[in-house]
């Protein structure tokens, strides 16, 4: 199986300068490998650093130590040393992320938000909208809502718009932060199906799934994230 992500010895500590340099270690010596066609579920108690790890893998959090390589256009690229334009290209083409919350320009219709990731891939606006409509329909967003900005949607509807937006452009690697947290059983099934399809086309996924049924349905293996055990927080002088 092709290796998609190889993380070795990742460590991350927040230094809070506004709190007299208080240090908060969140990741310590984390090593993880992701292969194509598999889904790895991150496990561990709340506060163990599951979300922090996911954010570090997306280069949203900077790690202080360790190596993080990722397969991008046939080559393993070191993410911790990638330039911003490289990171932007990697995120556009290779590395997707479905966050828990939708964060978008307020007045843009749901349909256009979902269509947007297809535009850099050479789709016309009309083609991208057509495909976006298919995704929204599949995720049970009623058509009368498509032309509305999602600000007024329910939490579950917003989350489904977010999933459609995060998955519509097929990327080889997908990071999922509780994608089913506010969904009912029927919509959870749709998301499970979407994850299975992504795996079937060879994508690798790393996710946090609090809901046990979803986790059992999609995960090929579990990765236990250990809370960092360090002495009492220290203060810089």
């Amino acid at each position: 199986m092709t290796v998609l992500i190889q993380a070795r010895g990742l460590s991350k500590t927040f230094v809070l300068h506004q709190q007299d340099g208080l240090t908060l270690p969140v990741l310590h010596d984390v090593s993880l490998t992701l292969h194509s066609g598999e889904c790895v579920a991150l496990c561990g108690p709340s506060g163990a650093g599951k979300s922090s790890l996911l954010k570090a893998l997306y280069a949203n959090y900077l790690v202080q130590q360790g190596s993080l390589t990722l397969l991008h256009h046939g080559q393993m690229v070191e993410l911790t040393r990638a330039t911003p334009p490289q990171l932007i290209a990697i995120r556009e083409q290779t590395l997707g992320y479905v966050s828990q919350f939708l964060r978008v320009i307020p007045r843009v219709p749901a349909l256009d938000l979902v269509a947007e990731p297809l535009l850099p891939r050479g789709y016309t606006q009309a083609e991208a909208r057509r495909e976006a409509g298919e995704w929204l329909a599949r995720l049970n967003i009623p058509e009368r809502l498509w032309q509305l900005p999602p600000a007024t949607f329910s939490g579950g509807e917003q989350q489904r718009v977010n999933i459609a937006r995060g998955m519509i452009a097929p990327r080889p690697i997908l990071l999922l932060d509780e994608p089913t947290a506010s969904l009912d059983a029927a919509n959870r099934q749709v998301v499970i199906q979407l994850i299975q399809e992504a795996k079937a086309r060879g994508a690798g996924l790393i996710g946090i799934f609090h809901d046990q049924d979803t986790r059992e349905a999609v995960a090929d293996r579990l990765y236990d994230v250990q809370a960092v055990k360090l002495p009492e927080p220290t203060t810089e002088d």
Binding site: V15, N60, Y61, L62
Partner: peptide, 18 residues
Amino acid sequence: SGLTDQILDDPQHAYTQL
């Protein structure tokens, strides 16, 4: 300086954190 989401979610410099 950096990717906007990284600067806002994981600011490194004291002034950016403020």
